[in-house]
Simulated scan of single mutants.
Amino acid sequence: MTTAPAALAPAARAVDAAARAAAPLTLAEVNQRAELLARFDRSYLVPADTFLRMIGRLTDPRHPAGPFRALDIDGRRTFRYHSVYYDTAGLRSFHDHRQGRRLRFKIRERVYEDSGERQFEIKLKGRRGDTVKHRQPLAGRDTPQGARCWLFLADTLHRAYGIDPPAVLHPSLTTDYLRATFVADGARITCDAGLVCTDLRTECAVRCDAGLVLVETKTAGHLTEADRILHAHGIRPAVFTKYCGALAVLRPSLPANRWRRAARCAFGGEVRVAPAG
């Protein structure tokens, strides 16, 4: 059962309205036009009203290059995502990203809550500084800590980096949010609202500002029109990832200065204890 738009917070309401107003696009068309498993990502923390102006321009049917269209699956335009990030006990993935190491990776299980589909995903850094995603479906009792996923991880890291995988991985952080996806040829924009991140060690959580949309532009090349529109509104890319930004707030003792400014903007620095169950 979906939440009625009037009951949503401002950012979620803006994402829902923008997706409903755009022309639809099927998942097969998304993969055909802009699958972008190797891409450059830029993240922005965008006030809901600015987001609506940006996406309104891009989805306008009169757009000279053709409008961006919204992913539609069985009449649904917004989708609930749940991800579990895995790391070593010493947070190797977090610290490799903090130090800017080229041979770095993130590991997660992604659950598409509306369909129940599960994916094991490995995000690597390519030679050009781009993000390269590898994934395989999870079925039945498969888990990222199981033998099948470990072999996939080992093969991926050997092929890409020539390194061995961590011997042991632990669930570190979960993220939950509402997403709409807008697509044009060779370009994709994901728009997330209502982000909640929970530290699985402490069971504390942070919630993103209800008026901010986390916009990520994804392209194989240079700046997109969406980037240029946001820059014209005075909004610059944020040094922010869900995993590292959340840990910067949830574990203030970590050396995470590069993410703290954007994380404070996103989360306000407020940490709450997650309710039991």
Rank of each mutant, 00 (worst) to 15 (best):
M1G: 12
T3C: 06
P5M: 05
A6T: 13
P10G: 04
A11L: 02
A14K: 00
V15W: 01
V15A: 04
D16A: 11
A21V: 06
P24I: 00
T26D: 14
L27R: 12
E29F: 07
E29A: 15
A34C: 11
E35S: 13
E35T: 11
L37E: 11
L37M: 14
F40K: 06
S43F: 14
S43T: 15
P47F: 11
L52T: 08
L52H: 10
M54D: 05
G56I: 02
L58R: 09
L58K: 10
T59Q: 15
T59C: 15
P61L: 08
R62Y: 05
H63G: 14
F68M: 03
R69I: 01
L71S: 02
G75Y: 08
R76F: 06
R77I: 03
T78H: 03
F79Y: 08
H82P: 10
Y85F: 13
Y85E: 05
Y86C: 02
Y86F: 13
G90C: 03
G90H: 08
R92Q: 05
H95D: 08
D96I: 02
H97E: 04
R98E: 14
Q99P: 03
R102H: 09
L103K: 14
F105K: 03
K106M: 04
I107A: 00
V111W: 07
G116E: 06
E121N: 04
R127W: 12
R127A: 15
R128L: 15
D130N: 12
V132E: 12
K133N: 06
H134E: 11
H134P: 13
R135C: 10
P137G: 04
P137K: 11
P137W: 03
L138H: 07
A139R: 13
A139C: 05
G140S: 07
W150Q: 11
L151E: 12
L157V: 13
R159H: 10
R159A: 15
A160I: 05
P165M: 03
P166T: 07
A167I: 13
H170T: 11
L178D: 03
A180K: 01
A180S: 11
A180D: 02
F182P: 13
A184S: 15
A184N: 09
I189R: 02
I189G: 05
T190F: 05
C191M: 05
D192I: 00
G194V: 00
L195V: 06
T198N: 08
L200E: 00
C204D: 07
R207C: 10
D209P: 01
D209N: 11
L212V: 04
L214S: 09
V215S: 00
E216V: 01
E216D: 03
G221W: 12
G221S: 07
H222F: 11
L223M: 12
L223Y: 14
T224M: 05
T224A: 09
T224L: 14
R228W: 12
R228E: 14
I229A: 07
L230V: 02
L230E: 04
H233F: 12
R236Y: 14
R236E: 15
F240S: 00
Y243S: 09
G245E: 00
A246S: 15
A248S: 08
V249N: 00
P252V: 04
S253V: 07
S253N: 13
P255F: 06
A256Y: 01
R260A: 01
A262G: 00
A263G: 01
R264N: 06
R264E: 03
R264W: 07
C265I: 06
F267P: 00
E270R: 14
E270W: 14
V271D: 00
A276Y: 09
G277R: 10
